[in-house]
């Protein structure tokens, strides 16, 4: 602990001890979300058909939209990517406050996991888009802002690679990480700002999600958040082990 009471973030504490359990919970929750999305959650009705049929004891008069099942993973991975970018900004702020390289290291790892979830969001979104809209890409407001977010995350790593001096790299990366985060609330709110957006607004009191749809969605969401946490701690420990090895090598060379 420093004179001003500042304490550098450490690994190996309670946050690391709970990581395997949290990851396991995440895997279980997301699996439960997956199963319930296909069992508990009712099918979403599309266009009206020319009659009525009884299926599973229920009168059905609409097309059953199976592609909507993508939503139960697409939205959770998208939210997780945004949360991780939020952490990139937070770690950036902490670095600028303290100049402790440990915060920059955490920001870089969080950005890597954010990129993983951004790509997962793009994969799932593409599958929906190709089937439902018949195109691989369209410049719809939510897609455009999220695409910009993906480019910003890629650019974060390009920018880091362009600096040799660690202190300068960490400072620029921290500021960039904070600026990058500005796109997150814009992406989140774009369906409200531009009502013509074809993306639905999910987080609202009258979202229309019935409990049977909300449960698998929330299970998947918390599952993905837990998995992201587990990956973050795993990557952090691997990184710190790498650094210790490099440090020992240097000491051996000097001796």
């Amino acid at each position: 602990m420093g004179k001003d009471g500042y304490r550098s973030p450490q690994t190996g504490g309670v946050l690391d001890r709970i990581a395997p359990v949290v990851t396991l919970i995440g895997a279980l929750l997301s699996t439960a979300g997956f199963v319930l999305a296909f069992t508990l959650a009712g099918p979403v009705n599309g266009a009206t058909v020319n009659g009525v049929e009884v299926i599973g004891g229920e009168m059905v008069s609409n097309q059953l939209l199976f592609s909507q099942k993508i939503f139960y993973f697409h939205m959770p991975v998208a939210v997780t990517s945004m949360v991780m970018i939020g952490f990139v900004a937070y770690f950036g702020i902490r670095f600028l406050q303290t100049r402790d390289a440990a915060w920059d290291e955490r920001a870089r790892i969080a950005a890597g996991i954010a990129l993983l979830f951004v790509l997962a969001t793009m994969f799932t979104g593409e599958m929906w888009e190709r089937f439902e809209w018949g195109v691989w890409w369209t410049w719809e407001p939510r897609l455009t802002t999220y695409f910009i977010l993906m480019l910003l995350v890629f650019a974060y790593f390009v920018m880091r690679a362009s600096f040799d001096e660690p202190e300068r790299r960490a400072t620029f990366a921290s500021v960039y990480g904070i600026v990058m985060f500005i796109d997150v609330p814009i992406t989140f709110a774009i369906t409200r700002i531009v009502p013509s957006s074809v993306h639905p607004t999910i987080f609202r009191t009258d979202s229309g999600l019935s409990p049977d749809m909300l449960l698998p969605l929330l299970l998947s969401l918390f599952g993905m958040l837990c998995i992201a946490y587990g990956l973050f701690r795993l990557r952090l420990r691997a990184q710190e082990l790498d650094e210790r090895v490099e440090h020992i090598k240097e000491q051996l060379d000097e001796a």
Binding site: F34, G46, V49, N50, G51, E53, I55, V60, N62, Q63, L64, L65, F66, S67, K69, I70, F73, H74, V77, A120, F123, T124, M127, W128, R130, F131
Partner: peptide
């Protein structure tokens, strides 16, 4: 008519989950 979208969309749904 009711099931019209289920079979054609199945590969996309499976691909989405598999890719994640």
């Amino acid at each position: 008519q009711i099931y019209a979208t289920i079979l054609p969309s199945a590969p996309f749904v499976i691909a989405a989950y598999a890719l994640v």
